[in-house]
Design a protein around this nucleic acid. Sequence first.
DNA 1: TAGATTGTTAATCGATTAACAATC
DNA 2: TAGATTGTTAATCGATTAACAATC
Lengths: 208, 208
Amino acid sequence: MPKQAISSSVIRRLPRYHRFLTELEQRKVIRISSKELSAQMGLTASQIRQDLNCFGGFGQQGYGYNVSALREEIGRILGVNNRCRTILIGTGNLGRAIAMHVNFQQRGCELIGLFDSNPTVAGRDLAGMPIHHTDTLDGFCRMEKPVMAVLCIPRDNAPQMAEHLVSLGIRAFWNFSHADLILSDPDILIENVYLEDSLSTLAYGLNQ
Amino acid sequence: MPKQAISSSVIRRLPRYHRFLTELEQRKVIRISSKELSAQMGLTASQIRQDLNCFGGFGQQGYGYNVSALREEIGRILGVNNRCRTILIGTGNLGRAIAMHVNFQQRGCELIGLFDSNPTVAGRDLAGMPIHHTDTLDGFCRMEKPVMAVLCIPRDNAPQMAEHLVSLGIRAFWNFSHADLILSDPDILIENVYLEDSLSTLAYGLNQ
DNA sequence: TAGATTGTTAATCGATTAACAATC
DNA sequence: TAGATTGTTAATCGATTAACAATC
């Protein structure tokens, strides 16, 4: 555990390091220097060394880094071996795709429940799990104690749903609902995902 | 058009400004000061004024900004009224969800073709369009001249497919394929979307 | 030991914030 | 005119890069 808070710029680079190291390991690469890795990833060796040293000295002078040991360390920092209990609310197009396409386990999460407010959808199966009606959310959370929620609901419902989920013990939101979630409790983690904003930056670039 | 290249930090904030201004306009708000807007968006008034002044003086001293005029200007900068011709490759879970869920038109893009390499999928309809077999890609591009491609294909196929699409005239990639796209031509625009990396930062936060 | 490469400090760069003169 | 708020310059802050002593 780091002594000092790590900047979010650094944390957001960790999954990418992990990805490259996983691939190197699969290719049976044993050791790598910050210089080699930087060339492959398109960043500077300095940055890699700075980033890694936020968490401790994982390398060895004159040698570099051991690929599997480093991958292991970064995985541990990211908590990839955890099983953070997660529910998903809203099984429209996007909700279904996320439930089926996203590998939650690989990221230290476990999808334990799916919910939808539409009674005709409730009861159906998705990603090997039944979809529950949102009416049963309170009881489910009391029993199963999820800590993370994926929000794939319409934007107008999101703030209210989020506050309710906080009262049921949710500590983190992966929010796809097209609304900037701003909650009263500052300790709750929020990742607002705006897929379309990323599309807009491409459209901007094409105009120039 | 800006004289000097605008930093990507600024450009990435534009869609969010646009979103907030759209909502203000819907709420019949006529004018807003950078101070009021900053309070609503959770950033500083200075930053808003700096950002907007990259593109020109849209405000008026002593008054603030006219909501619809400013929204219009930002929309124009982002090219929301364009119809950038876009194809989508790969109609698995994620590809289907993107085709149906993402509002391309709102972001200045138009989805004009869907492709899949699986012959049993080709011919089916999705989002009101037929899915073509990837074998027909070359002819389609020569006829229809798309400039953007959404990649929802497996990671191993992505680099090769991307290079091929560049040769067919594609200038921008919205890449969901779990591979860091790095192309030989530096003028090609790439947005690598790593949904799962965003999940990892949440998992990290919960561990602290 | 000599060569290589880290960990870490110092320098640079860019982005954000503050301040204020210009002006509506 | 007086008050408000921009546009813009200057100051600050944080992140990235460079440099190098420590050390394997």
